[in-house]
Write a protein that binds this DNA or RNA. Structure first.
Lengths: 345, 345
DNA sequence: CGAGACAATTGACAATTGTCAACTCAGTGT
DNA sequence: ACACTGAGTTGACAATTGTCAATTGTCTCG
């Protein structure tokens, strides 16, 4: 979602005489245009003259250069962390990192903005031999589509909870494979339903050699990426056919405030175990909590309670959220939250 | 040398009412502006409204964001290698990499353009524990100023040839420390003249414990960066007081065509050893040739002979040059050069 | 060989962005 | 108190950039 530009035509009349020796067959004009424009700071018209094409074509070339990742325009996530609010949240909840995406006046939905920032953060943090466990949800899905195409062959992306049955636009398997594809990473899908009908069937599944192998990889995750669902609304989990109201009811009755990777948590973030849990296939909350780096991407006013709970129980080491959510989060923090973070001198 | 932009003022009249909750004290408006503009693709006017400032201020913020490296606009060097010409040169001379910077119609001098591309390449290639040996010259100097500010604390930048006496704008010690500073790397200077008056004095210097220590580090270089000087013109080496015409004369007489890191080479690239060599303090050509990755940055019609010689004797594993030089280089190559590189389908 | 289809390129126009001199406002010195 | 300085901001204007429909070129097929 970089700058929007497209094509155009050149205005000047001194055209058509290629200045130097440009129009040879030994170069990709797109690369040239990108270099001259972005690196040397030429104007599009100058580039057009240099290349011997119309300025409109230059616009096209530049567009293509961005699409092909020949030029990269990136806001470094490190700087989004320098925003005072991000520091306050990080301090308050003991996070190693916190990204707060600015408000854009409702231009883009929250989950998309958070997805974009999360994408940026993710590619800056991934190391060659990482195994990234991926949960699912609207925000995770948004992150996956915001990722640029890359080549990170050493990385593995693993699906940490079973598949959903419904056919919404997002699902665990789609999130995972999308991310892996964009990243050029190995993709490990968990080929099993997220929820099976009985605890016994779950046991059967889990003992299946193919799944055992898959789980071996999943358990090697040194980073996890997950969203947080609320239970107030009809929630992601239900809309996607992952759960049904009847199944959820007992959890709600016992005080569930949110869903992390398909599992319910109470207001303190404690796992809320119930009958359903024995039918769920995927990493448990305790297992997730053991992964060294845990990236939580979530925001929106309806999710504040759930995010607060999740943070409170330290499920996340890194949080990507939006301004409004961050603002609600700070005063709630159990520890001392410092007011008035450092401003520029 | 990214896009040129500066400050400005906003045109619309619907201003001054901050749309959401932007003007709080918890954020750096520069980061916000950068995010909204570059990441979300808002127009500057929209950003201005969102932030509650004039559009002119937004222009200023964006300028500052680029200056502060909050946004990075980069042409990936990998793509400069995809230019057919670069491949031809690489093939012809057995290089692992070759970058060819496009012609810009004389807008910027060759060495600056090459320096920019070299800078890009360098930061993409440097690994955490690298020791980078740095020679000197106009192009190396240009590279150093084209580097962005970074933090690469694990990297060491070492000066591989002694200091010059003159006070030109560039010198071995300046090149090295410039590069180290920009990169946020450790800087190891070689505190000795590049040329001393007698071979005996050189021996004394080199045995000095402080220098012995320095050389230990220098010899650990796993990457080197050097330019190539011609001897046709009055050359860098002389203008900087590094050498004098009398000293050079014997080398010229014996067929010197170029200078690499202060040492003369003949038309086959062979080191041309003479009286002076025993008075030079710094890595020898043979020592340089043993470094695994050797980045040569050089171009310009006056240097073609010298670059050809250097490439011919395999001093470089990576070459950064300009189109004109690359064009001259290809037909000279001793091996089979393939004509007509791949075009886009 | 011409018609048709499709992609690339272009010029005119509209929108966005950069420049600049003037202005505001805090802080200072007298 | 008041003029002065300097940083930060602004509006009007100029330059640059994006859009789009029309044109051109290329390739395929009849």
């Amino acid at each position: 979602m970089t700058r929007t530009m497209q094509r155009q035509v050149t205005p000047p009349r001194i055209k058509r005489r290629a200045l130097s020796i440009p129009a040879e067959f030994d170069s990709d004009p797109v690369v040239w245009a990108a270099w001259l424009y972005y690196e040397e700071g030429m104007t599009q018209e100058e580039v057009a003259d240099q290349l011997g094409v119309s300025r409109a074509s230059v616009v096209n070339f530049l567009q293509e250069a961005r699409d092909r990742n020949i030029v990269t325009i990136a806001v470094s996530s490190r700087h989004l962390q320098t925003i005072g609010l991000a520091r306050e949240v990080a301090d308050a909840y003991g996070l190693t990192n916190c990204l707060v995406v600015p408000d854009d006046g409702g231009r883009l939905p929250v989950h998309e903005r958070i997805g974009m920032a999360g994408a940026r953060l993710l590619i800056e943090r991934l190391q060659p031999d990482d195994v990234l466990g991926v949960s699912w949800g609207r925000t995770v899905q948004a992150l996956s589509t915001a990722l640029p195409e890359m080549k990170l062959p050493g990385v593995t992306v693993a699906q940490i909870c079973g598949c959903s049955i419904g056919t919404t636009e997002f699902s665990p398997e789609l999130c995972t494979s999308n991310i892996a594809n964009r990243l050029g990473a190995r993709c490990v899908n968990l080929h099993a339903p997220g929820i099976v009908s009985t605890a016994q069937i779950k046991r059967l599944f889990v003992q299946e050699p193919a799944l055992v192998e898959t789980f071996k990889i999943i358990h090697k995750s040194n980073k996890v990426l997950f969203g947080v669902g609320s239970v107030d609304d009809a929630g992601t989990a239900m809309r996607s056919g992952y759960m049904t109201p009847e199944k959820i009811a007992p959890y709600l009755a016992r005080g569930a405030v949110g869903v992390v990777s398909g599992r319910f948590i109470d207001r303190d973030g404690k796992p809320l175990l119930g009958a359903l849990d024995n039918q769920m296939i995927g990493l448990t909350l305790d297992e997730i909590a053991k992964v060294p780096e845990r990236i939580c991407i979530a925001g929106g006013s309806d999710k504040v309670d759930a995010v607060y709970a999740a943070l409170n129980n330290n499920y996340a080491t890194i949080l990507v959220t939006d301004v409004a959510t961050a603002r609600s989060l700070v005063p709630r923090a159990s520890r001392s939250s410092r007011t008035g973070a450092a401003r520029r001198p």
